[in-house]
Amino acid sequence: MARLISGEFAKLWSTRLWMWLLLATIGLTALFASLNIAFNDDPATLAPPLATAAGQRLLFGTAAGGAQTLVAVLAAIGITTEYRHRTATTTYLTTPHRTRVIVAKLVTYCLVGAAYAIVCLAVVAVIAWPWLNARGIDVTVTGNGIPATAMGVIAAVTFFALLGVGLGALLREQVGTVVAVLVYLFVAEPIVTRIPALQDWTVYLPGPSASALARITLTDQSFLRPWQGGLVLALYCLGVISAGLWRTTRLDLT
């Protein structure tokens, strides 16, 4: 298994895609955090005041919003590339146990997702500390529930990496998988979750579940408890990965 994981990392480093997506993730995180701080005093904002624990948890929780979508895209590309460039046949001939290959990809992109999340948390901290200190707001990474939020962010991004691998294994088609992930997470889900009449069930969607795991609070939207959000995401991962494994092990590569 160690050899397979090493091979997956070698494939990942062989292109610059991971670097460009990391830079895009950093940019999105910086944008989200900056907008949160800049408009926090606006009466129309949905965020709690940054002087409160809830406001600071939301601020650090923006790291998940910046990372989880692009990590899912990176993970999906990591497996669909095998089918797009016809390298899957060689991969599975080298390692006939296809499940082991998928497990190696899952482990690889879990680690990559955790690394992306940590980088994004650092970006938020670098932006937040001087900006909020200039406003006279004290920020401490050891209080106000921020450590729990940071762990939730890392877990949420890791779950999205697993979802990316599972979707890639299930759908196989690279462009379609990437477009589906981007449209759903950037367009469809944000629209649906803002409809008050649907909020009784939209809390169980992947994005809101990740927000719950990161202990995010909004003034107009309710979330599950953190452990419930984590459980929901775990069930999504279990379902998608199981379907992806079934297709990988039962169907032809052509």
Score class of each variant (00 low, 15 high):
residue 251 L to M: 08
residue 142 T to K: 00
residue 166 G to D: 06
residue 17 L to R: 01
residue 2 A to G: 14
residue 227 W to K: 04
residue 140 T to L: 05
residue 14 S to R: 12
residue 127 I to W: 01
residue 194 R to D: 14
residue 13 W to G: 10
residue 110 C to T: 15
residue 204 Y to Q: 07
residue 242 S to R: 08
residue 254 T to R: 12
residue 251 L to D: 13
residue 35 L to R: 04
residue 237 C to G: 11
residue 64 A to E: 10
residue 168 G to A: 06
residue 211 S to R: 13
residue 101 V to T: 15
residue 25 T to M: 06
residue 232 V to Q: 02
residue 143 G to F: 03
residue 237 C to D: 13
residue 128 A to G: 10
residue 132 L to A: 11
residue 210 A to N: 11
residue 95 T to M: 09
residue 19 M to D: 06
residue 67 A to F: 08
residue 219 T to C: 00
residue 16 R to H: 10
residue 41 D to S: 14
residue 22 L to N: 09
residue 124 V to T: 12
residue 91 T to G: 09
residue 156 A to C: 14
residue 222 S to C: 00
residue 180 A to T: 11
residue 170 L to H: 02
residue 77 I to W: 05
residue 74 L to I: 06
residue 166 G to E: 01
residue 115 A to M: 10
residue 184 Y to D: 03
residue 118 I to S: 12
residue 184 Y to P: 01
residue 248 T to N: 04
residue 116 Y to C: 11
residue 227 W to G: 11
residue 183 V to H: 04
residue 2 A to Q: 11
residue 120 C to G: 13
residue 34 S to V: 03
residue 250 R to K: 12
residue 123 V to P: 01
residue 115 A to Y: 04
residue 50 L to E: 14
residue 219 T to H: 01
residue 109 Y to A: 08
residue 195 I to G: 10
residue 2 A to Y: 09
residue 177 T to P: 07
residue 68 Q to A: 11
residue 154 I to G: 13
residue 93 L to I: 12
residue 183 V to K: 04
residue 74 L to C: 09
residue 147 P to V: 01
residue 6 S to H: 08
residue 82 E to K: 02
residue 180 A to W: 00
residue 86 R to M: 10
residue 156 A to Q: 04
residue 220 D to E: 01
residue 254 T to E: 07
residue 141 V to A: 14
residue 207 G to W: 00
residue 181 V to T: 14
residue 71 V to R: 03
residue 190 P to L: 05
residue 246 W to Q: 09
residue 19 M to V: 15
residue 46 L to W: 01
residue 32 F to Q: 04
residue 117 A to E: 05
residue 3 R to G: 11
residue 130 P to C: 05
residue 231 L to A: 15
residue 145 G to I: 09
residue 135 R to V: 05
residue 108 T to K: 06
